[in-house]
Design a binder for these strands. Structure first.
Lengths: 350, 350
DNA sequence: TATTAGCAGTCAATTCTACCGAGTGCCAAC
DNA sequence: GTTGGCACTCGGTAGAATTGACTGCTAATA
């Protein structure tokens, strides 16, 4: 077990000597291409590997023992494990987008207009087009935004609608059911008071609500509480998922397809999946790293989007562990950067 | 071809005598259950068919000639064609929901609160739970609604947000990019004028915009045009799709799954699919009747939702042509009725 | 000592064959 | 018109044989 290294010492626990690394990379590249287990001879024919198949074989035995490769069955080639992909990704020199794709991205961001929601949704489609993987775009919640305006509107005597505009350009509505018939003048007055109370605050800000028992005060209290109640569930993040049909293209087993779609259906879960990966400081989660068993054969690539240096969402790509990491990561990165720049107060505002 | 009928005359072009009908129904029922071609003997053992397999066989030959059944290959049983399913559906005595499911629906509608969007989304989940099929809920556009309130909000000097509240409780926002720096007082004044102009109108109403060249008038013109521009694309309908992962459960071929998911991704297309079926006065579209080739092995069940007698959306279910029509149609019908009742000005307002 | 060629062994995938059996169409009998 | 009987068809399955892409091991080599 404890063999002494001669030239390139496997310095610590997670480093392979140059030859093993080259072999591992060859295996990953080949397997991503063909979806088949790869054998020693095809590795040996790789330009970066200058030894014979026999040597490759003995190295592969070592790589398997160390958990980077696995063998589906005795007389088959090797397949990368999650750990193998992890090593591959960690030692990947970041790629660049093909020029056609770069052009496509440029063109896209030069031409998008409209509401943030539309831009984000279209961005997700763009990502899917670029990579052929399912994409996710998460828009930030308005927890950092301040209130620009609130307005109470009478739907009928018992039902009011609270419309709040935030500084990030998002608009939310909340309906209020009153226990008493509300007069128009009261709504107008409550609206006025709410504006005075809330403009400039965030959802976190504690505000002093009137404690009187009259109709207007009750309306104001109800409005504030319904607005601030939004907190716990979700911060109003928006999720846009593009190309879920790619799931059926990219995974083989129907069972896998079902499980992955089942995850994608739950938007809150997708948000926290992306968030968790970012929180761990990762840009890729492979297999079990995603934290969700149904995604054990998936890899998720994420890239944060910021506005004025603050986190403001993320873009993501979901594919099989056997995915084209270099290209996909490049795409995610470029798009997230462009998106960041697009909202850097530059010109357009959603 | 022109055979004279003795007892139950096949009155016109689309009617089968009682025996053929019984056989067709038996085939459909069996096939829906087993997903296998159905043979003469298993049909003959059905309680509603009182003849021998040999007789069944000769009838099945006739049914095949008339296009109700098909034979995958010579020595296999029969499978219903789209036409066969169509006959089956047309002559289906409407079923009722199981009591457990009825209870579930009651409970659901007794407890839902909140914004229309949330209710509709949850309704779609309910439908999926009830039937195990993918469900679609389409919320009406606000083409019939009147404007309750409009408000212009300054995001910054060059960007304004137009927030419009409709009588159906929906809120839409539109962003406006100004060619000049806008003062707050101008925004307030424009807001006032817009309210005077638009309250009570629908999106179809022609309004008289000021033709002056000053900043306020320009803002008002921009706001009106951006609001009315919404028309052509979509009426602001909302689509909620639940249980798209069921697609992978219910269809066998990965290719079919991909095609169907590809359709479901295009929300506008889903809206018009549902709308087309309703416009044809149908409640079920089978195979080619859907009008979309990728859905050729699908059936779509729809049921309209009304508010005050006016169409206000629809619920739908998408499954394989080989689907449990009775149960699914019952579910769609019950849910659409409950939804209609729920918004019949009863108590809660979204 | 590291590398390599050679070789025997393993095992999934493929092909072939035979066969079974579900189901048909036809026909003669009822 | 209905039925039982019968020969026929043909997809699906099961088993055996074959293939071939691998491996691990070992002995020779640099």
């Amino acid at each position: 077990m404890a063999r002494r290294a001669t030239k390139a010492p496997p310095s610590s626990r997670d480093d392979l000597d140059a030859r093993k690394a080259a072999i591992l990379q060859a295996v990953v590249n080949e397997h991503v291409d063909t979806a088949q287990p790869v054998g020693s001879s095809s590795v040996a024919s790789n330009a970066d590997v200058v030894v014979s198949p026999a040597t490759v074989r003995s190295e592969m035995v070592a790589l398997e023992r160390e958990g980077y490769l696995a063998q589906p069955h005795t007389s088959a080639g090797r397949v990368p494990t999650d750990k193998g992909y992890r090593y591959f990704v960690d030692h990947l020199q970041s790629g660049v987008l093909g020029s056609a794709q770069q052009h496509q991205v440029k063109e896209f961001f030069a031409n998008v207009r409209g509401e943030v929601e539309d831009v984000l949704e279209q961005t997700s489609m763009l990502l899917t087009q670029l990579t052929s993987y399912t994409s996710v775009v998460v828009g930030a919640g308005h927890s950092n935004s301040t209130v620009l305006s609130v307005q109470l509107v009478n739907l009928d005597a018992r039902h009011q609608l609270l419309v709040t505009v935030f500084s990030d350009g998002s608009v939310v509505k909340h309906s209020i059911v009153s226990a008493f018939d509300v007069k128009h003048v009261d709504v107008a007055e409550a609206s006025r008071q709410l504006n005075a109370l809330l403009i400039g605050t965030t959802l976190h800000t504690r505000v002093q609500v009137p404690s009187r028992a009259d109709h207007v005060a009750t309306l104001v209290r109800d409005a504030v509480s319904v607005l601030h109640a939004e907190q716990p569930t979700s911060d109003g993040e928006q999720v846009f998922i593009g190309g879920s049909s790619k799931v059926a293209e990219v995974f083989d087993g129907v069972e896998t397809v079902r499980k992955v779609l089942g995850i994608l259906e739950q938007e809150l879960l997708v948000v926290s999946l992306v968030q968790d990966i970012l929180d761990q400081g990762l840009s890729v989660a492979i297999g079990a790293e995603t934290g969700y068993e149904p995604l054990s054969s998936c890899a998720v690539i994420v890239a944060p989007v910021t506005i004025d240096g603050l986190p403001a969402g993320a873009v993501g790509l979901l594919g099989p562990t056997r995915m084209k990491y270099r290209e996909a990561m490049a795409a995610a990165q470029v798009v997230s950067q462009q998106l960041t720049r697009h909202y850097a107060g530059d010109d357009e505002r959603g």
